[in-house]
């Protein structure tokens, strides 16, 4: 691992490009959003988790934890309380995203954004019953939708 990290980065494929000018503008536009907030992403699929992480980095966030299961997410939240949770709903076997987010929020209140492959109509009643004020995005997600949901999550929070 260490050897890989220090291996020559001769290619362009780091996946962690420095923010471009466009990204900097995006970050400035996200008024009222604390970019130093710690984000917890709960998603069992590595590619989707990576994409969400990358989109969040592009928006200007730098403190992001990834959890592949509900159990891992709850454990991660105990180590560091998240300022925002972004979670898939279905996480394979074990605790699902709604239960994980509700468990975490009951201990340290944080806004929650769910991303789901289920139909929104199917997921909404359960999500709303479990986590008040949570928003719901459909897979596959788009950067603009995610950004809007994040701005909304923090502004709704500020209004409380």
């Amino acid at each position: 691992m260490d050897q890989l990290e220090t291996a020559a980065r001769y290619d362009f494929a780091s996946g962690h490009n420095p923010p471009s000018i466009g990204n900097a503008c995006d970050a400035r536009r996200m008024l009222g959003v604390p970019l130093d907030a710690h984000l917890l992403v709960i998603e069992d699929d590595a590619m989707i988790a990576w994409m969400v992480e990358s989109l969040l980095e592009d928006l200007g966030f730098s403190s992001i934890s990834l959890a592949a299961s509900g159990e891992d997410a709850v454990a991660a939240a105990l180590v560091r309380a998240p300022g925002l949770i972004i979670s898939d709903i279905h996480l394979g076997s074990g605790m699902d995203g709604v239960t994980a987010a509700a468990t975490i929020v009951s201990a340290c209140s944080a806004p929650v954004i769910f991303i789901t492959g289920y139909s929104i109509a199917q997921a909404r009643p359960r999500v709303e019953a479990a986590v008040q004020g949570a928003s719901l995005l459909r897979k596959p997600i788009q950067s603009a939708e995610l950004e809007t949901a994040i701005v909304h999550a923090f502004s709704a929070r500020g209004a409380h």
């Binding site: 780091s14 996946g15 990576w50 994409m51 492959g117 596959p140």
Partner: peptide, 22 residues
């Protein structure tokens, strides 16, 4: 339906990350 949407999410992830690295 759920599986297809999840798969689309994976494809979107692959597309996004492949684009970033290209």
């Amino acid at each position: 339906n759920h599986r297809v949407k999840n798969l689309l999410g994976v494809v979107a992830g692959i597309a996004h990350m492949t684009a970033k690295s290209s």
